[in-house]
Design a protein around this nucleic acid. Structure first.
Lengths: 108, 108
DNA sequence: CTCCATACCTAGATCTCACAGGTAATAGTA
DNA sequence: TACTATTACCTGTGAGATCTAGGTATGGAG
């Protein structure tokens, strides 16, 4: 649920192939998306019509499968953003009690 | 793992019995914790030493099982708060892009 | 040629949580 | 007394998401 939204957000910037998504998340730290999570998720989202996939030759000349957002994917991303804002606000209120500071993106 | 943290936070305010936790969450809206989720979770957290449980007579005279935070539970709650802050910050950054607008152009 | 990193993939296990029940005690009604 | 609703507790089954732990294939470096 969360990963799906994050993949959409990552792919909004530019098309990317699966291994690159994994590697970027790994380099970033904080989040660890394993290949066994990401690849099946990409397939599923592709099948659901949220992504489009295309085999292209990468810079090394080797074929890579690039994923990009479809129109439905963009819509889903907008909804995911709204859902996250609400969810984060509720959890922050319960967990932090309003007086421990606020997570970003929480709107009243 | 989210529910665990939220249960800790709810029980920090005052000891409560399971049904009350469920009912409060239900009244609050937004979150729907089912009994089939909450009761096993309370048992597990009790067994892990995060909670203490005690049978008491409630206002109606009927026995109720009240849960309260143990010392370990308080520690776990503090850690959960820190984890949530970090997690929410990372997700918000990826999903909402630092500040939500069309902030694009931060290269990989 | 051999080794390593890249890049893709899947099967199975695990963990969380919801669904859909069940039991028992109390209170209100008739 | 019998009935019904509400409170309060509990569990078994299973769906869904994610990780573990593998596997395959290609291209470049040594």
């Amino acid at each position: 649920m969360e990963l799906k939204a994050l993949v959409l957000a990552v792919l909004e910037a530019r098309p990317m192939h699966g291994y690159e998504i994994v590697r970027r998340a790994r380099d970033r730290g904080h989040l660890r998306w394993e290949e066994g999570t990401v690849y099946p998720l990409l397939h599923k989202m592709d099948h659901e019509g949220l992504l489009r996939s295309e085999w292209k030759k990468g810079p090394t000349g080797k074929a890579r499968k690039y994923y990009s957002l479809s129109r439905r994917g963009r819509t889903a991303l907008e909804r995911a953003r709204a859902d996250w804002r609400e969810y984060a606000a509720v959890v922050s209120e319960i967990l932090l009690g309003g007086r421990h500071g606020h997570a970003r993106g929480s709107a009243p």
